[in-house]
Design a protein around this nucleic acid. Structure first.
Length: 894
RNA sequence: GGGCGAAUAGCUCAGCUGGUUCAGAGCGCCUGCCUUACACGCAGGAUGUCGGGGGUUCGAAUCCCUCUUCGCCCACCA
């Protein structure tokens, strides 16, 4: 590592080499970090779906986790980040089905076993690519603990959970209306249905009374379901229909007699106040049907075509064709009362966006209320903390209204349901078992396993303990359960996060983590979510290749504040990622420069904060940068602790660029060259503060910080910044005087530069400056005289009262005046107006300030220190304005 | 239909407990510089009715109400 460093930082080779080095050293395993000492700190990675390679959302999610895990690791915790991938039942099955479709096949052509084998092939490929991507962005997860949700161990946990919940009466099989996707041909949970507002219609249909005495009008958004109607319902108190309750309707098209029933669920104010009842195709109707012992007629096939239960001419029609046909027939029979435009929410499959069909079927459910209660309590008693806080409301209101969870899926890819049905006549036993069964435990007869698989979330809700070996009681489980922070996208709060809390409390007796950080979504500049179908995605790997992983990470972190989305422009990667790349380059060059000036060091450079030098040897600038560094330690540490990662990143950025590079390094250059007086002190201070900056930045930019940090003298070959101790605040570093005094130096240099620019003084030309002020106000400036001369490009600076006329004038915030004689270069008129404008600005401030202080209410009601502060401001502004006006007089301005 | 959030420079956003970061940062723009760490850089500069209206207060970008516009979550009125 001693080859000369290139002036332009090139992340690609450095990153891959360092990553290999980290993993070879096993730095990401908690065992090799702080053996036995630090408290564990555990993050469970939301396992990416093996459907496809990762997108920017994953980039953000995993960067946040990595920042937190690296932060806590450096703070001495035994940090464990558990990685994994999710088999993603329905999603992965769909992806492979689409692949097959391209080849002209369906999964049924292949058969179950061959299809599942095919999915495995996809999984092996994608799963490996995903892990590579996670590594490419620098994720410091413990890969030795990587799991896949269909692994043997996690499958055992799934089975144990199912059986145990069944034993407890919390898993049951039921015949209910569920959400059915006619494309995926499976049941879905309520959470898997996305409601979307659509402009639909409300058809008002006339149902003739059986006795021919008239009709009842019912309104529906899905006319085709009338083929399965088995009643018409009205509210029991609805006067309009009193005489009709108990009567019958002759159902058009089907010619079936169905009763008119009274049910409280009917809203008399909606539509006609009468509702058609289709128990097989609507959850509300199903309930009405139960209350009135109505038949359920299933008029749809799984594919949402009209079934054999309907009249011949409708059979086989797609649901929408059937809808048109039904409406047309009502119309021609004169039974279509009217059609209204109607805006309503329609459920769509969250995986293929097909409109959901409520369907009556046998499915397995988890009884959720008993699980939800403790999960709700954990929030109410403050055990769980949400960031941002308001997400806690979403969590609790979801739990309060929770409904049972349909967990069976009519898919082939997933954990097979551990239930066996006995086929022996007269037995029919249903066995729920931890072990595979080959015979009925009751009669010894032949059994067949339930064909269905479990909801993919039924395995992922166990991850916080199943990934650690549960149901076995393993050392990992003892040590790393419960974990600490969950970093998740808000979309999966209910699917995953809330359910993990329920399972954790139920099976482990403790919440799986206490802090839940829900970050935003990555969107394009039109605020659209990045997606493959919109083509507005950004490939994280492309960004890593072009800008480096550190730049990717920094951009994501700095673009994100608590509770807001990250906006990136897919059309213009440069504007999104160049600033971070530039920052990396800046850091690289600062490091390069510092390193190149350490050879002449004669004193040790390492050690606790500025311990290598004595206080008395420090210049004002040294004291200033040490104080700024310390303030940055505090600011960044607090920001990381509060999940304000963008603020932490910004604080370090400011320190490195605006303080260290722009000022301190510039200023200290003469001391560093050769064997200058104070050279060792400067070297010690610059190394010290740069080292702190690298450590503070490491969680966000792990690669470049490591690359630089390792090159500093005195580092052991095996030392890594990733386990270097986190910088601590140092009371001795605090130095308000230095902050104030050096601020004045900066202000003076800025004022002189401003005058130079104003009058177009050539950069190469040196000028003289005269500074006048009281001894007290110029003491600090005198200390840094050489700095002022160099950075303001002066021939000399003198401290004396000034009566010269022709030049540029300025006045600092402590009333010190500056004068630059410019001879012919100056345009007196221009200087007059420049001074005039500035004086006017100050006088306006003075005026409003006088008004404020003249206000009795303010003086008497505002706190004394505020009033004092405002008085001081007034004095300063007044005097500043006075100095400028005097200069104008001197110049003979009109 | 219920709940929540956001609106600040051309763009992306900070501004946390009302008053010393109070109108800011980065990008973009303008001017001048290849000053031997860095042109992915340096120095300087311009840019705002803090979404509209009302209120509370000595004092509001900040707190309250209201309107407008965007976004998110929830919802079995067919």
């Amino acid at each position: 590592m001693s080859e000369p460093l290139a002036p332009q930082y090139n992340p690609s080779t450095i990153e891959s080499e360092l990553y290999r080095w980290w993993t070879e050293r096993g730095l990401f395993a908690p065992e090799s970090q702080a053996p036995g000492s630090g408290e564990p700190y555990v993050i469970q990675m939301p396992p990416p779906n093996v459907t496809a390679v990762l997108h920017m959302g994953h980039g953000l999610n995993n960067t946040v986790q990595d920042v937190l895990i690296r932060f806590e690791r450096m703070r001495g915790r035994r940090a464990l980040w558990v990685p994994g991938t999710d088999h993603a039942g329905i999603a992965t099955q769909n992806v492979v089905e689409r692949e097959l479709a391209q080849e002209g096949f369906t999964r049924f052509d292949l058969g179950r076993d061959a299809f599942v084998e095919r999915v495995w092939a996809h999984v092996r490929e994608t799963g490996a690519a995903i892990l590579d991507q996670l590594k490419a962005i620098g994720s410091s997860a413990d890969w030795s603990r990587t799991y896949f949700t269909l692994d043997e161990g996690l499958s055992r946990a799934v089975r144990e959970t199912f059986v145990r919940l069944h034993e407890e009466g919390l898993v049951y099989r039921g015949h209910y209306i569920i959400n059915w996707c006619p494309r995926c041909l499976t049941a879905l949970s309520n959470e898997e249905v996305e409601k979307e507002e659509v402009e639909g219609h409300l058809w008002h249909l006339r149902y003739p009374l059986a006795d021919g005495s008239g009709h009842i009008t019912v309104a529906t958004t899905r006319p085709e379901t009338m083929l399965g109607d088995t009643a018409v319902a009205v509210h029991p108190d609805d006067e309009r229909y009193h005489g009709l309750i108990g009567g019958e309707i002759r159902l058009p098209l089907v010619d079936r007699l169905i009763p008119i029933v009274a049910d409280e669920a009917v809203d008399p104010a909606f539509g006609s106040g009468a509702v058609k009842v289709t128990p097989a195709h609507d959850p509300a109707d199903f309930d009405i049907g139960r209350r009135h012992s109505l038949a359920s007629i299933d008029v749809m096939t799984p594919e949402a075509r009209i079934s054999l239960a309907a009249p011949d001419r409708f059979q086989g029609l797609d649901r929408y064709e059937a809808r048109r046909r039904v409406v047309a027939e009502f119309q021609s029979a004169g039974l279509l009362d009217r059609v209204e435009a109607h805006r309503h929410a329609v459920g769509h499959c969250y995986r293929c966006n097909t409109v959901i069909e409520p369907r009556l079927s046998d499915q397995w459910f988890v009884r959720m209320e008993p699980l939800a209660k403790p999960a709700l309590e954990a929030y109410r008693n403050g055990t769980l903390r949400f960031v941002p806080e308001r997400r806690g409301d979403d969590y609790s209101s979801w739990l309060e209204g929770i409904r049972d969870w349909c967990i069976s899926r009519q898919l082939w890819w997933g954990h097979r349901i551990p239930v066996w049905y006995c086929d022996a006549t007269g037995c029919g036993r249903v066995s729920v078992s931890r072990q595979d069964l080959s015979a009925c435990p009751g009669c010894g007869g032949p059994v067949r396993q339930d064909e269905d698989v479990l909801d993919t979330w039924f395995s992922s809700w166990l991850v916080p303990f199943s990934s650690l070996g549960w149901p076995n009681r393993t050392p990992d489980l003892d040590t790393y359960y419960p974990g600490h922070t969950m970093v998740s996208a808000p979309e999966i709060l209910f699917f995953w996060v809330a359910r993990m809390i329920m399972s954790g409390l139920h099976f482990m007796g403790e919440v799986p983590y206490t802090d839940i950080y829900l970050h935003g979504t990555v969107r394009d500049t039109q605020h659209r979510k990045m997606s493959k179908s919109l083509g507005n995605g950004i490939d994280p790997l492309e960004v890593v290749e072009r800008y480096g992983a550190d730049a990717l990470r920094y951009s994501l972190i700095s673009g994100m504040s608590v509770g807001t989305d990250v906006i990136l422009d897919p059309q213009d990667l440069e504007s999104s990622f160049a600033p971070a790349r530039n920052f990396a380059n800046k850091l690289w060059n600062a490091g390069r420069f510092i390193l190149s000036n350490l050879e002449s060091a004669t004193r040790p450079l390492a050690g606790p904060h500025a311990a290598a030098v004595r206080r008395a040897e420090l210049t004002l600038a040294d004291r200033w940068i040490i104080a700024r560094c310390d303030a940055t330690v505090v600011e960044a540490t607090q920001a990381y602790e509060r999940f304000r990662l963008n603020e932490a990143a910004a604080a370090v950025y400011r320190f490195i660029w605006s303080d260290l590079a722009d000022w301190y390094i510039e200023l200290v250059k003469p001391r560093l060259y050769g064997d200058q007086p104070g050279g060792d002190v400067a070297r010690a201070v610059v190394v010290q503060t740069f080292d702190v900056a690298l450590r503070l930045l490491h969680p966000v930019m792990p690669f470049i910080t490591e690359a630089l940090w390792r090159r500093f003298p005195g580092r052991a070959e095996t030392a890594s910044i990733s386990v270097a101790p986190w910088p601590r605040q140092d009371q001795r570093a605090q130095d308000p005087d230095a902050l104030r005094d050096f601020g004045l130096v900066q202000e003076l240099i800025g004022a002189i530069r401003g005058i130079r620019a104003e009058y177009g003084v050539q950069p190469g030309q040196v000028v003289r400056a005269v500074v006048s002020g009281s001894d007290g106000s110029t003491a600090a400036l005198k200390q840094e005289r050489a700095t002022i001369v160099r950075l303001a490009k002066l021939s000399a600076v003198t401290f004396a009262p000034n009566q010269e006329r022709i030049g540029g004038h300025a006045v600092l915030s402590n009333r010190t005046a500056v004068f630059i004689p410019l001879g012919e270069a100056i345009d007196i008129g221009r200087e007059c107006s420049r001074l005039g404008t500035e004086a006017e600005r100050l006088l306006r401030l003075v005026e409003s300030q006088e008004k404020k202080l003249g206000n009795e209410q303010f003086v008497s009601r505002a706190p004394a220190e505020v009033v004092d502060r405002e008085r001081e401001k007034l004095t300063t502004w007044k005097e500043q304005a006075g100095v400028l006006l005097k200069k104008r007089e001197l110049l003979g301005c009109s």
